[in-house]
Design a protein around this nucleic acid. Structure first.
Lengths: 206, 206
DNA sequence: GCACGAATTCATCGCACGTTGAAAAACTTG
DNA sequence: CAAGTTTTTCAACGTGCGATGAATTCGTGC
């Protein structure tokens, strides 16, 4: 069915010509396949095929599947500075919730949410992904959010509460697909969810 | 740790004596292992071992791993009538949110949330689980919630919104474990989350 | 009480996985 | 340009998987 392989010819052996970066190709392919299939579902052979190289290269460059996984998931693709600053400082303070909902749906809706489901699959399939995500959240995102919302009252708790609403919205909309939420238009989602996010971030949570 | 049915003696062949229900034992074991390990992580051998029977019985009774999976996840262990009725009618209408948070945390906190993570792993690892969960939600839970909250304004949307907050709370508290939410005590969670749930179910979402 | 069918175990098959070591091709150094 | 190093493919191994068919034991109808 789906083949990641590029060409049908029998590969010639030995070192490749030119500066083809096998290591980078493997990392890129690994990120895709691990996201799509989770750790156990992703096979070394399928990753190598998508990268257009032999499966033995995984051992040669990363010492095995575990090593490749560790290197691949540790590379965060998004730039947190840009995103968080845009969300927190891109408009009135009392419209942060709305901006978050619009941004989130604007990113995930066009790609059908399959990528979100894939991310959740990786998070739940392997504890290491959850660890990486947590470290990224705590050490990078959290500080910026805490500073951005400018609240004295337990800003860290507020940030995690907001994260819970965002995770839940993604789970219901993209993974389990409960209707009518899964198909609700952006305006409906904003009116429903934004006030709750706003309360978490700047309202009274005592 | 936990052992299903197990003894060390070599099993005698042929039909078993007495009314031992191999089919039911397999279904029970399958539900446990599929929940704990997800579809791909659960092996037919491990399920059969926990049920105390031979792996070949999976083929004999269910035609294979797929068939067992379909039958196993289609059996919902909890009684929706009891739960939903208790939640929706067990007290004042304006305290539904609080009752939901307390019930949810009361169920999952004692078992460390590992079971919740396992459920999420099953949901995200195999589309069929998400399908089953969705059907259960739509055809069983949703109608009761819609009737229970007694609101004319888009009760189905309200129910799915509430579900999103509950899913998200579980994901952040048990799976990715963002602090301080992951360790927040019940009272803090109630004060923070219950009002948002209450708004989803009975408040103004326009 | 004997024959037949259903239930269960066992031995084994074929397959796909991750990994390994050797062979081959391309770079690098003198 | 020859020797040495690095990179790459290939063939194969051991393992564990789901599945299959024969052998064995129990229950049941006659």
């Amino acid at each position: 069915m789906n083949e990641g392989t590029q060409q049908a010819e029998p590969k010639r052996r030995g070192r490749r010509a030119g500066g083809e970066d096998t290591k980078a190709a493997l990392l890129a392919a690994a990120r895709e396949v691990f996201m799509q299939r989770g750790y156990e579902g992703a096979t070394v052979r399928s990753i190598a095929a998508r990268a257009g190289v032999d499966a033995a290269m995984v051992n040669h460059w990363f010492g095995g599947k575990e090593g490749l996984f560790a290197k691949a998931v540790l590379q965060v693709p998004i730039d947190p500075n840009t995103l968080v600053v845009h969300l927190l400082e891109g408009g009135p303070r009392d419209e942060i919730g709305e901006r978050i909902v619009r941004t989130f749906l604007g990113v995930w809706d066009p790609i059908g949410g399959g990528q979100f489901a894939a991310l959740m699959r990786s998070v739940t399939a392997h504890d290491q992904v959850a660890d990486v995500l947590r470290d990224f959240f705590v050490h990078t995102l959290l500080k910026k959010v805490v500073a951005g919302i400018g609240t004295e009252d337990r800003p860290e708790l507020r940030a995690t509460l907001a994260a819970s609403q965002i995770f839940g919205m993604g789970m219901v909309r993209y993974v389990v697909r409960f209707e009518p939420l899964a198909s609700a238009d952006v305006e409906t989602m904003v009116k429903a969810v934004a006030p709750n996010l706003q309360r978490y971030l700047t309202g009274d949570i005592s």
